[in-house]
Nucleic acid binder design. Structure first.
Length: 440
RNA sequence: UCCUCAGUAGCUCAAUGGCAGAGCAAUCGGCUGUUAACCGAUUGGUUGUAGGUUCGAAUCCUACCUGGGGAGCCA
């Protein structure tokens, strides 16, 4: 007999309101319990929600009532009971238990309702995922990912996934994870972009979505060694079109989270007004204008000389001047990648763009217009000391019907961290990979 | 890679050169409306590792290991 077989209908707690005053069956885990002598209050979660199940001593045998009191945290339970409305419940309902069965008694559970340190929780990430706060974050992540796919799928984009194994790097190999590929060296991808450029020539509007890997020894709240990135690429889009797309895309994602995950945002104590404020148009300033803000508002250290990239602190100072995400475009070409197109009006500038999230969350999007001229690209590859033979296929895109095109990459974890209002990206992915952390 | 802080009970922490402690968890008992329930009791220790200083080290010194925070790095 299956455990789901029961005289009462087996229901999920999130739908419990549909069964008011009816007897139902719930399968789940014991989240917490309290007892008042002749009453047990069992907090039972089933993955969708948590509900309080109340047991009166008079309704059970001495032995059964005692057994419920001895059941350990996270034991698997089958609860049969009547759904009752109750204003004291956070979800508006509780269950008057008529049947109680322990399906699997849990050993002493390491994560208690009291406080724990980061290292301990990270070591128990597989169990930590059962906590209410982690549920909220992972559900918002899932909503963001669904919104990403829905946006592109319903706007004429074709999903063209890029490979994970790649034969070489865009910019040297120091930041790549190297792996053996049948006696050849292969690297884990750090971007699908070059492949998206090829795909854009085939399909016009494309995107890829998948994990990317960086072997940077970065120990900051914004870095993971394995993270997820969505990268659209559009044929015949210039830099401004690219910013229009990024803006529309981000507004859509934020709206979806506000629409469908408001409860989770509230549980995380997110300032929702700040998210509601994220509306078009986003400010668009040049690198030079950003530099001017730093020289006016920044500390001495933040007054970076022309030609240098901004660090996290600099981005925060600039973003504090605005109440929504902002674009910074046309950085000095010297700090950008070989494939970025130069500004025809000033070749020292690159037609790139970063989107900086508000509230100090930093860069969530990086992208730009790509160089479409074969000879310029050949020179760049030489200037960057890159192995030309690795890029022969990439150069074909310019040989066989070249075209202006633009795209960007959005980091999922930084977006989740921003929308949830978290202090660290490590909680935004179910099983984070960080420098020095490969388990669980 | 650098700077900085930390490592003591299952967890979160206290004890700053002189008897290793508390709260939570666990175990036992009490309580008919608890919301991180509460009340009483019990159990729980190779003080990260290896050396050193000292009559005496969790505490001071050296090295190493592990972790947190930050920087650099970061299409």
């Amino acid at each position: 007999m299956s455990v789901t077989e029961c005289q009462a209908p087996r229901v999920y707690i999130e739908n419990i309101g549909e069964y008011l005053d009816q007897e139902v069956c719930i399968l789940g885990w014991l989240y917490n319990k309290r007892s008042s002598g002749k009453l047990h209050f069992l907090q039972v979660r089933d993955g969708t929600e948590t509900i309080q199940c109340v047991m009166f001593k008079g309704d059970f045998s001495e032995e059964a009532f005692k057994q419920a009191d001895l059941t350990s945290q996270e034991s698997t339970l089958k609860i049969i009971g009547k759904v009752k409305k109750d204003d004291r419940s956070p979800i508006g309902y509780e269950i008057g238990v008529t049947g109680f069965e322990v399906l699997s008694e849990a050993q002493e559970y390491p994560i208690t309702p009291k406080e724990h340190g980061t290292a301990f929780l990270m070591d128990h990430r597989h169990l930590w995922l059962r906590s209410a706060r982690q549920h909220a974050i992972i559900r918002i992540r899932a909503e963001i990912i669904k919104a990403v796919r829905d946006y592109f799928d319903s706007n004429g984009f074709t999903l063209v996934d890029a490979p994970i194994f790649t034969p070489s790097a865009c910019e040297g190999t120091t930041n790549l994870f190297e792996t053996d590929y049948f006696e050849e060296k292969a690297y884990l991808t750090q971007s699908g972009q070059l492949y998206m450029e090829a795909a854009a020539a085939a399909f016009g509007k494309v995107y890829c979505f998948g994990p990317t890997f960086r072997a940077e020894k970065s120990k900051t709240r914004r870095h993971l060694t394995e993270f997820w990135m969505v990268e659209p690429e559009v044929a015949f889009n210039d830099l401004n079109d690219n910013m229009d797309l990024a803006e529309d895309f981000v507004v859509y994602i934020v709206q979806r989270v506000l629409q469908n995950r408001r409860r989770e945002l509230t549980l995380l104590e997110r300032d929702i007004a700040k998210l509601e404020n994220i509306q078009k148009p986003f400010p668009r300033i040049t690198y030079d204008e950003a530099l001017a803000i730093l020289h006016e508002k920044g500390t001495e250290e933040q007054k970076v000389p022309w030609g240098e990239d901004f660090g996290g602190d600099e981005e925060t100072v600039i973003s504090q001047e605005f109440d929504r995400p902002l674009f910074i475009h046309r950085y000095p070409a010297q700090c950008k990648a070989f494939y970025m197109k130069s500004d025809p009006e000033n070749p020292k500038l690159s037609l790139n763009v970063d989107m900086i999230a508000p509230e100090g969350y930093g860069e969530v999007i990086g992208g730009g217009q790509r160089e479409e001229d074969l000879n310029v690209l050949l020179e760049r590859i030489k200037a960057h000391n890159l192995p030309i033979e690795a890029f022969d296929w990439y150069l074909d895109i310019r040989k066989y019907g070249s075209f202006p095109h633009s795209g960007f990459g959005l980091g999922i974890e930084r977006t989740v961290s921003w929308l949830c209002g978290l202090h660290h990206v490590r909680e935004t992915i179910p099983f984070p990979r960080l420098m020095g952390r490969l388990k669980p």
